Amino acid sequence: MVSDSSKGGGVKSDETLCALLEEIRESDGIRLTELANNMSLAKSSVHNHLSTMRSHGFVVKRNGEYHLGLEFFKYGQYTRNAQEIYSAAFPVLDDIAAETGETTWLMTHENGRLMYLDGRDPNNEININILIGSWEHMHANSGGKVILAHLPKGEVDEIIEHHGLPKMTDKTITDRKTLKKELKQIREQGYALNLGEGLREMHAVAVPLISQDTVEGALAVAGPTYRVSRERCEGELFERLRAAADDIGLSLIY
């Protein structure tokens, strides 16, 4: 539902358009009448928005249902390719995944959330493409925590205030004081662990990708607990990630 007044001083029509797109995405195909009812909007108004988006390729109609169009893919590709860490890290992802035998992720952050930019799974245990481009809370992810550890304290406070510390599993850190204590340790040791905090039975280790004293993203290796123990995370996997991060850091500079 779209409220009568937009939040944060935004333009109401833009807020409506964004809400419609999100509803279409979540529905994975929806008819006009259902979309209007879900949004508590007039059918004619929704139809006008859809007509405009269809003319620009952002929405398509198939079998009477509206879906997001491929025009978004063009913008998504442009946005990812514009990330300097993507260009710098892309060549090493295959190598890390092949050498470790585990899923390797490249992540970045924006507006207090973590996004998977790219990934490799040498075991084909998960569908990488489903996760690429998705958002995660930073406090329950090794990549997110290692990024938080290298952000200014004021920015970390703002992120926690805005996004909270929701519980994902029984091991998720949900206390601000506990999280800040761990972030201090992460800064000192150079890596972050995720020991079942985001998903049960999954472990991960991540290192920061830093360019000119600014954290641009994170590189992580993740896998099931029976293969990826804490000891392996803090030993072999960390060392491999640290070497890769050093190479990527040089690429970002030169």
Rank of each mutant, 00 (worst) to 15 (best):
N129I: 04
M138G: 01
K171I: 01
I96G: 03
A245F: 09
N127H: 13
E110M: 06
I132M: 08
N127V: 14
R227Y: 06
L50A: 00
P122L: 14
D118S: 14
G57T: 08
V2D: 08
D213E: 14
D94Q: 11
H49G: 04
I159W: 05
D28R: 15
E155Y: 14
C18R: 13
S40P: 00
L50Y: 00
L32Y: 12
L237T: 02
N123A: 09
A204E: 03
N123F: 00
K167Y: 08
L106D: 00
L21N: 02
E197K: 03
I253C: 05
T178V: 13
V228E: 04
V221K: 06
A192G: 08
A42C: 12
T172A: 11
P224L: 11
L199F: 12
L219M: 06
D28N: 15
P122K: 13
L35M: 11
G101Y: 13
K153Y: 10
L35P: 06
D247R: 13
H137L: 10
S13V: 13
E99G: 00
H47V: 00
E201N: 14
N63E: 15
E84A: 08
V215F: 03
E231Y: 07
V92F: 14
F72T: 04
G217M: 04
G235F: 01
I159L: 04
G143A: 10
A97L: 09
A222L: 06
K171F: 14
S40Q: 15
E84K: 06
E236F: 10
G144S: 09
G10M: 14
D247I: 12
T169I: 09
L179E: 05
G154C: 03
D246G: 02
R230A: 08
F73T: 11
A204K: 03
L68H: 02
E197Q: 14
S40W: 11
P91K: 00
L165V: 05
G217V: 00
I126A: 07
V46Y: 03
E161N: 15
A244P: 05
G144T: 07
L193P: 02
R25C: 04
T79W: 07
M1E: 12
V92T: 13
G9T: 01
F73S: 11
S51T: 09
I132H: 04
D175I: 12
A220S: 15
S45F: 11
Y191Q: 06
I248T: 07
H139L: 02
H47P: 03
E26H: 04
T214M: 02
K74Q: 08
V146E: 02
F73L: 10
L165H: 07
G57W: 14
E188Y: 10
K43A: 09
K12Q: 10
L209H: 00
D95L: 10
R31S: 12
K171A: 07
E216M: 15
M202R: 11
L114H: 11
K43Q: 12
I160E: 09
Y86F: 15
Y116Q: 12
A204H: 04
L117Y: 01
H56D: 07
L70N: 14
K181W: 05
A218L: 00
S44V: 11
G101S: 11
A222Y: 03
E236R: 12
F73I: 08
A97D: 07
E182T: 14
H49C: 07
K145I: 02
N81K: 13
